[in-house]
Design a protein around this nucleic acid. Structure first.
Lengths: 151, 151
DNA sequence: CAATGTTTAATTGCACACAACTAAATTTTT
DNA sequence: AAAAATTTAGTTGTGTGCAATTAAACATTG
């Protein structure tokens, strides 16, 4: 009886903002990006550019395609973003001689130098979140599971 | 000894993409928006426009400021978005006679009619997530807590 | 090896996000 | 009430995101 009434009216609870999962995800994502802002601004970085650096600091050289696969971004987003990073002399962009279709993004000295300044950012963000390491890991795990469902 | 070494090297684990909370949040948020895409496209809606409707379907009339407070968006985002929704005859935009600074957004019949078509979207998304109601609620609660920390 | 199909970036166009600024209306203070 | 401060949208400019298209390079197939 009650189960049937869950969707019996157009104005059912499912459409209330407070009952959505999508909204807090959307909002937390943007607010967390904003929390990074002051630290990234000091390095003249945007948030997606910071994510590209997280990859390049682990592996100095990646193709646009590899970056796109890891960050789930396509060339329409990455090409202009990487061109801006190239203008700032942070990365190099050159065709792979073995496969001219690919563009290899390489970390330049100025880009490598940013790592030393960025390495304290995660801890400072973590402080803002007021989360225990347990909560942090649990939430990350849940989100990663959800991510694998959605990709 | 070990504790000190956690940050002793620039190439520490904190800067690895896999250890970040920010990336899965950012990625899940975008992928979830993409999951809504086919349903929203059928209604000629974008995702943020859908969020505005979630509010207006609960309360037929809201000022730009009230919408901004609930969705955590400013007028730079909302003004053009709401103008597009006005062009489609979904909402009205008019100055509040009692306070000419405010612009009241009102739900028009065409906008109200969309609710009937949208009311099945949440369930269909929920199916895609493969989450139990318990997991769903727990994640939503955690995200809402995080959101309150970040605002 | 020529034709076809696939892969990879780049380009184009649209819609957010958001910082910074402007301008009008309202409120508060003097 | 006049001046100053605040509130509220709108505007401008930059940087994503992403769908759709294009073009070049490579791979596959007959």
């Amino acid at each position: 009886m009650m189960a049937a009434s869950l969707n019996s009216t157009p104005e059912n609870n499912m459409l209330k903002l407070d009952n959505q999962l999508c909204f807090p995800l959307y909002a937390v994502s943007r607010m967390l990006t904003k929390a990074y802002q002051p630290y990234l601004l000091a390095l003249d970085l945007t948030y997606p550019q910071y994510l590209v650096f997280l990859l390049l600091w682990e592996q100095e050289s990646l193709t646009v395609k590899q970056i796109g696969e890891k960050l789930l971004l396509d060339s329409g987003t990455l090409t202009p973003l990487l061109k801006r990073m190239e203008q700032k002399q942070w990365v190099s962009r050159q065709r792979d001689p073995h496969d001219e279709r690919s563009v290899v993004i390489g970390l330049l000295p100025a880009g490598r130098a940013l790592q030393a300044q960025a390495c304290q950012i995660p801890e400072q963000i973590l402080t803002k979140l007021h989360m225990s390491p347990t909560e942090f890991t649990a939430l990350r795990t849940q989100l990663n599971q959800l991510l694998s469902q959605l990709t």
